[in-house]
Design a protein around this nucleic acid. Sequence first.
DNA 1: CATGAATGAGCCTTCATTCAT
DNA 2: TATGAATGAAGGCTCATTCAT
Lengths: 242, 242, 242, 242
Amino acid sequence: MSVSAIRKERERTAREELILLHGRRLLLRDGYQNLNLDELARAIEYSKGTIYLHFATKEDLTLGIATRALRERANLFQRAALFKGSTRERIRAIGFSCCEFAVSHRDYFHVEMMLKSVSFWEKASTERRQAHGLEAGRCFHSISGIVEDAIRSGDLPSHVTRPAEVVFSLIATTMGSHIAAIQPELQLLCGIQDPITPVRRNQDIVCDGWGWKPLSGDWNYAATDARIRAEIFPDAQWLNNS
Amino acid sequence: MSVSAIRKERERTAREELILLHGRRLLLRDGYQNLNLDELARAIEYSKGTIYLHFATKEDLTLGIATRALRERANLFQRAALFKGSTRERIRAIGFSCCEFAVSHRDYFHVEMMLKSVSFWEKASTERRQAHGLEAGRCFHSISGIVEDAIRSGDLPSHVTRPAEVVFSLIATTMGSHIAAIQPELQLLCGIQDPITPVRRNQDIVCDGWGWKPLSGDWNYAATDARIRAEIFPDAQWLNNS
Amino acid sequence: MSVSAIRKERERTAREELILLHGRRLLLRDGYQNLNLDELARAIEYSKGTIYLHFATKEDLTLGIATRALRERANLFQRAALFKGSTRERIRAIGFSCCEFAVSHRDYFHVEMMLKSVSFWEKASTERRQAHGLEAGRCFHSISGIVEDAIRSGDLPSHVTRPAEVVFSLIATTMGSHIAAIQPELQLLCGIQDPITPVRRNQDIVCDGWGWKPLSGDWNYAATDARIRAEIFPDAQWLNNS
Amino acid sequence: MSVSAIRKERERTAREELILLHGRRLLLRDGYQNLNLDELARAIEYSKGTIYLHFATKEDLTLGIATRALRERANLFQRAALFKGSTRERIRAIGFSCCEFAVSHRDYFHVEMMLKSVSFWEKASTERRQAHGLEAGRCFHSISGIVEDAIRSGDLPSHVTRPAEVVFSLIATTMGSHIAAIQPELQLLCGIQDPITPVRRNQDIVCDGWGWKPLSGDWNYAATDARIRAEIFPDAQWLNNS
DNA sequence: CATGAATGAGCCTTCATTCAT
DNA sequence: TATGAATGAAGGCTCATTCAT
């Protein structure tokens, strides 16, 4: 590849990043249906036609945005999975990265909700569909690897035989906690002050519920959190007050 | 009020019910943005103008649909809260009614998701906003009453001092489990077969996690479920196979 | 039907006529692809939405325009077929109505050319497709009836056994003559002065070619033309100079 | 001109031929409005910019395609005009080449129809407009030369004094027959089986109608056709079955 | 000369809302 | 009160043309 071809390719990638970046912003602000390609074009200071050189349809673009975020999440999970410690400490590091992701991708759950529509996927390109599935698998396996270790090592009780059920618990509770924590009515009724604390608490509760040792009451997880932060996420801002 | 005025009022209420009934059906099928008032008018066999005699805007209508569903949920919770038994059994009855609601209002979570948009609430009428808050409060208090009883009676450990945190755990996990259980990718990765079993399992895990006695392993909850079903939800279909 | 409903229906029909009238004008001026519904709406002084209350798609509208013109042609043919005289005189009356139609629907052939695209018909409504076929049949049978009479009466030679071939000759020659007569290059090369004379001449040539009696040289067709004009088309303008 | 300049010129001509060749294919498949220059560029494996080095606008390109086809037609006519025989046999050879052209340029009439739009010609270059007129003239004079010979030799009756009228008859009938023969509705109503037979029949009818000797019934034209085919169009495929 | 990325005007279609009857 | 015809703004997508490299 010639020097200029390399530069072209780099510029193309940069522009795709720019589209995805502003696209995510507008998508989170307005939702999928109200996402306006005219406004996006204005924001990136390129023409609408240029957006269509990168994405076949609006759905394709949206899926691109979702996949990019999912990849970042999978990357965070992969980093977290390297944390040295007990399996319960390691799953806590995953929980930590979930929150890190939620903070840096505020309201991103809304985007994931859109992806449920069947008609949506039909209009996205095959490549992007596969890319999305790939990242989803990476996230899943980062978690299930730790759960399997916990079963093998006896950190989870012997009656826990299907790791996927534990993974599902963790994902569902985390997702639900994030969503619930930003609902104004629930904030009021349940006295939610910040969007992270209740998520982490519920992750602990679920681990305890599965009997994942050492239980919350039997270990100083504050010290673990300090290690996670220092070793894995030295740049995280949101843990300052916890 | 004259006799004819009473009849008029009754007819008006019936028509509003009809709008909400078909509105919910179309809303769940198509989503908010694709909800078409022409089609709704055709379905109810009244004119579009008539819909506007009941609802100020499309947002107002949608909020009306959401509130009506929330009222049904609050009603289910109220019935469940009357169940006689330990606090853990009573909260299980609430969990049961959650699933009952989810089954009879399949995909209703999508509607609740829409309600997060700020611009949405701005276009709804004040009366309907208040009505929605009222029903949300009814749901919350049905649950928190049981949690408070559990704290008082010692079924929850003494270190649990803020009932709202327990309520939030339950709501968040239940909501998240319902949503996660219908995601095709998670169904595949986690081996989800039906949309109810994982929800109920996670509710149990959370209660165990909070140390709510008697724990899952210490009590025959299958027998409790049979009682709940017989006494509270004699018509529920979905528990047949559990 | 109530009085007001009748009035509404009449207004609706009038508006559809208005749309078809201006639609034909713009269609002939710009062609199908350049027909602009915004401009049409402006021309009829109704909104674009109103056009869509009458026609499902742009293709549907175009087919509506074509069918309306075809109906007028079929009506002209029907009137012409009533002319009293020899079969050759009667087919001449049909030819007369062809020209009458061509004059009042100048350039209408362009519209018929569009109808060949398959994708076009797919987007038109079934009703309108059937209506178009109906009118085409009416035109055909007006001609073939006379040809069959000519065969029976011996005005056409006995070796002419398939009337449809004669009909095809007449239609093809007439259509081709109309098209050719408005081609600037052919006008120049062939010395075409007006768009009607060569059409009528070619119709005569074809009838003579089939041996349809009485031949052009054996009869005073100028007198027949005068009768046709007086009896069938008293309002025709274009024959003045012939 | 230098050797390399000659090579360049030859390459340029070859590329223009390539553009016209694929352009005609796409033009016939999609029509003028749906002709896509991106697809054409992909087909010729040159860039879109290169197309614009040869043709000023899309209209200019289209006219180029039409002119190239017209030149081929004129070439066919010229070959046919060399046929040795009576004037009626020679005009038959022209008719033969018309059909040969129609078969090898199926649906080419659609392209010619486009050329009628005034706005079309405005956007084409002067050179190409003149080139088109030149080929049209060649076609005309091939035919009119034979007609003039027929008048001089007495094959056409003495009352036929304006050869252009005969030429116009032949052109109009041939064109109309080709168009009519591919209309689905007319195929159905008139029982058209193949697109060539009715064209040739109508050409005969028109010649007979003008009294061009020897008339169809007075001569074995099947033998003439065999000679035309053998001497002028040894490669023609479509006459096999006639 | 050859390229192809970038442009942006243009257009069909939808649908929430209004209002005269 | 109930209607439904009429509105018109909005938006996704296309593609001929340009021009910097």
